[in-house]
């Protein structure tokens, strides 16, 4: 049972992510609101050209298949 998620194609990183999310959701209201801000993380990037910042674009995470 311990590693049954591996056969379903879930990677270790995804597994720890699910565990961490479950732990955050089990907290008392006060701590949960602080912790849940860590759940969503994103990256934005911009290309700099001639000393000027280009358009700021968010990187959309690829859907895990």
């Amino acid at each position: 049972m311990a590693f049954s998620w591996k056969t379903a194609g879930i990677t270790y990183l995804k597994y720890t992510q699910i565990c961490a999310r479950a732990v955050r959701n089990a907290l008392k209201e006060e701590q949960r609101l602080i912790a849940q801000k860590r759940d969503e993380q994103g990256i934005k990037y911009a290309k700099w050209e001639n000393g000027k910042q280009g358009e700021l674009k968010p990187i959309v995470p690829q859907q895990h298949s």
Partner: peptide, 17 residues
């Protein structure tokens, strides 16, 4: 199958808690 596996991981975490 993946949704099921995810839910089973969560079940494991909550039971451990």
């Amino acid at each position: 199958e993946e949704e099921k596996a995810e839910a089973r991981i969560e079940v494991e975490v909550y039971e451990a808690l």
